[in-house]
Simulated scan of single mutants.
Amino acid sequence: MRNSLDIAKPPSATRVVVAMSGGVDSSVVAGLMAEQGYDVVGVTLQLYDHGAAIHRKGACCAGQDIHDARRVAERLGIPHYVLDYEERFKAAVIDRFAQSYADGETPIPCIDCNRHVKFTDLLATARDLGADALATGHYVASRALPSGRRGLYQPVDADRDQSYFLFATTADQLDLLRFPLGGMTKPETREHARRFGLAIADKADSQDICFVPTGRYTSIVEKLKPEAAEAGEIVHVDGRVLGRHDGVMRFTVGQRRGIGIAAAEPLYVVGLDAARRQVIVGPREALATHRIGLRDFNWLGDALPAEGETLACHARVRSTRPPRPALLRMVDGAPEIELLDGEDGVAPGQACVLYDGPAGAARVLGGGFIRRRQDLRPAAAHTTLQATI
């Protein structure tokens, strides 16, 4: 007989390490596991110098949140440990974040945090503690597959869906991971927090970039990669120089406002050439993208299509956009995605996540990071500008 975590042990003999951030979601996971009789150990990661973030609304993994996690553990009567991962977090997340902006990309640090710190280093710690499972407060679901492995799925609460940020989770990691909130809505989670008598029941969700105390990411990037703040030209796709800018790090593909030039027609950022320090702008139609290539590809589906064949799927190129019809093909061993309806503002450095359906508990097939454009010369045709493979 299997327990509620799909493990063939009674709860009392099942050790569960819970990643506790100090927020409502992970605190409720700890409460649910303790209530069900599991052997629960709470672990909180200190990820960066939390002095400046102690009282900032929306911060996480620092100061007040560590204190909140400790208080929740005391309330639930479970052991709690705080692990100093600052050095690892800086190398795996903050430095990569700054480098990505310096390269003219638009990074997603939460994905790097999940794949390099939480689901690699923390999983190793959980195994060292003899854990049968690592439970987190993410709004995703995992279920057993006919193969005996586990699949990753969208949650019941579509408004809280975090599957886009977890595409890099490997099959081996999924075997140990559990996501108890996948079948709940956020209001239901908060109600559990009140039922457990947790003081953080109405605590605001973390938001923005956790390691930027002021909310201004440019200050971090400029400090670590000053070349990203070097001035350069704003160039139209037809080759005209329209003005100057104060650093490619201040722009992202698809941006409409704040470009800093006056023009008779609406202009959008359609590309960033960090090597030439150029911000390339053009009309909205220049944003259309139908074909992208991916790097750091992670596959969670069944068999990949053979060379020359395609797999029908749905692709999501931004966390705020729904999955849309696409085709996956492997070209010389590398993934290529055809967006059947096209997408505007596809930004290198962002993730492209693949699903087996449009929405509603769809299975995550995998994904990767959108590769930088190989040719960003302003005189190039729009079709060349938008090819990212």
Rank of each mutant, 00 (worst) to 15 (best):
R88Y: 05
Y139D: 06
A158I: 11
I108Q: 00
A102T: 09
L134G: 06
P146D: 02
L129Y: 04
A102L: 11
D121R: 11
A91R: 15
E105P: 06
S142H: 06
R150E: 03
G151L: 04
Y101K: 11
K118G: 01
A133P: 10
R160A: 15
D103E: 15
A126P: 04
S142G: 09
L152I: 05
A144L: 12
A144E: 10
A158M: 10
T125G: 07
D159R: 15
D103H: 14
V93G: 02
R88F: 09
F167A: 08
A131M: 07
R149Q: 13
L134Q: 06
R88M: 13
D159V: 14
C113K: 08
S147G: 13
G148N: 08
L166K: 06
C113F: 00
R143P: 04
E86T: 12
A131S: 08
L129S: 03
Q99N: 14
D128N: 12
G104R: 05
T120N: 13
D157N: 13
Y85A: 08
A91P: 09
S147T: 13
V82P: 07
H116R: 14
F165A: 12
I111C: 00
Y81D: 13
R150C: 10
V93W: 00
V117D: 01
K118L: 04
L134D: 01
N114L: 00
Q162C: 03
D157W: 09
P109L: 08
P109R: 07
D121P: 00
P109I: 10
V82T: 15
A91E: 13
T136K: 05
V117K: 05
R127D: 03
G148Q: 06
C110A: 10
A144V: 11
A133D: 10
L152K: 08
Q99W: 04
F167Y: 12
L83C: 13
C113Y: 01
I108A: 02
D132V: 09
R127F: 00
S100R: 02
D161C: 10
K118N: 00
F167G: 03
L123T: 12
A98E: 00
A102W: 04
T125R: 14
V93C: 05
A131C: 09
A92T: 11
A131T: 07
D95C: 06
H80F: 07
A124V: 11
D159G: 15
A144Q: 09
G104H: 02
P155M: 04
A135H: 05
L122E: 03
C110K: 09
P109V: 07
T125H: 12
F165R: 07
E87K: 14
A92E: 15
L145D: 02
D112Q: 04
Y164W: 10
A158R: 15
H138N: 06
T125A: 14
L134H: 08
P109Q: 09
Q154K: 11
F165C: 05
F97N: 03
G130E: 05
F119L: 14
Y101G: 07
D157V: 15
R150L: 13
H138I: 07
E105V: 04
G137F: 05
L129V: 08
L166R: 04
P79L: 11
R150M: 07
A102Y: 01
Y81N: 15
A91F: 06
D128C: 12
F119V: 11
K90R: 15
T120H: 09
